[in-house]
Design a protein around this nucleic acid. Sequence first.
DNA 1: GTTTTCTTAATTGTAAACAATTAATTATCT
DNA 2: AGATAATTAATTGTTTACAATTAAGAAAAC
Lengths: 243, 243
Amino acid sequence: MNNNLNDLSLSNTLMRPKPERSSHDVTIYNQIFDAILSQRLLPGTKLTEEELAKIFKVSRTIVRRALLRLSQDCIVDIKPNRGASVACPTVKQAREIIQARRIIEAEIIREVVTLIDQDQIYALRQLVDEEKKNVEHHIRSSGIRLSGDFHLELAKVSKNTTLTKFIRELIPQTSLVIARYEKPGYATCSHAEHYELIDIIAQGDAQSAVLLMDKHLLRIEEKLDLSEHNVQVDLKTLFCEVG
Amino acid sequence: MNNNLNDLSLSNTLMRPKPERSSHDVTIYNQIFDAILSQRLLPGTKLTEEELAKIFKVSRTIVRRALLRLSQDCIVDIKPNRGASVACPTVKQAREIIQARRIIEAEIIREVVTLIDQDQIYALRQLVDEEKKNVEHHIRSSGIRLSGDFHLELAKVSKNTTLTKFIRELIPQTSLVIARYEKPGYATCSHAEHYELIDIIAQGDAQSAVLLMDKHLLRIEEKLDLSEHNVQVDLKTLFCEVG
DNA sequence: GTTTTCTTAATTGTAAACAATTAATTATCT
DNA sequence: AGATAATTAATTGTTTACAATTAAGAAAAC
């Protein structure tokens, strides 16, 4: 089963030793988690137990375990007797998620500035290199995933597993928010800002780093259309999902 | 099943309408959650599936669901093929949990000061009245629970469900930390500080309220013995749990 | 033609049986 | 006696079958 949350990685791609074979439900959990994170699975998508069971060649029990965990992460919505679907964050939730990230990542940055070493700075730069490369080659999914990985790796440097766990939850939620509310035409090319962040962190300027991170997260919100108009549409999709 | 996390209540005692009968696994989840929160279940306690199944008169399937959810809340520890037990936070985790609360509850207080109305202030006072009464009558469990409820209700006033969810997780974790590391002789009589907090919030002084909350949370940490000596003991209990 | 009701199909929820793993006990050997 | 090996018991992990619920479609009523 192996569901101690020590392994807080977002993706199963980069920088992951993964020595031990994990149980099946963890695999399914990771795959769906990653699909949501990288926006291959969009908000509202129905997740039928049997369908997933067939795809992953396991019994529904295993699928149910994975779905339950995803629902605890607030990226899958389980309705009694109505099954699971990819969560569809409301406008209010969208704002809350960004706000929560601003608070928590500010603190993380504060810690990171005092804790980070050269190797970790190098590793972060490599990660953003990879992110940039994927975005430039129009490998959209990987680009989004790696952008999330950057924030997660930053959290890990802070050494606070509790805050890291929260950020690990908020990152795929942010992906859903972006998928749902991104203004048309805005490509999420965050790598430039990520490079800036690393530079300021490397300089050891805590206050500037915190401000820059906050600006970075606010910019995500600016790229969203959270207007009243969208609140209406949101209700529509909500009904669509119910009926 | 009903596991949408909209109902963020900690206990099933006070101020809970609970109109619809929830599914069995939710009941078990709530009961164990409450037992941990109110320190009737102590860190390290083994939670055998069959035993719980018999107590609650359901199949192990339901028990397993509840345990999985509790483990996602970091208050139950599930080891593959070795079963579940009440989590035993390390000294490091203890520090992290308090730190996370300081950050998040600071923001919550900021929101609360601008949002709270007279009815909510009255309700909070009532809650602390109840807390005080229980502590004075030496109903330890209820006192602890109600102390947690105060922080949770405060979070709810902030209207930020994301931050409230985090606090809802951190409160029982704090209970475990206190149960494990409280210095002998320190009774956790937090109601006096809770009254103070309400007063300052009612006055609308955001900055003072934030500072007081931070002091309140730091005082919890001061009541703990997180010394090196305890780190050693912690390893011992860890082995005890394993073997 | 529209609404309502009944029937059927699909999907989720629960329990119980079986398999796999780990812990405890007994038996065996030095 | 002490240590090792084999056996048994206890516990967890997974699958399958069945029950309950909901969605969809067909027939009947207005």
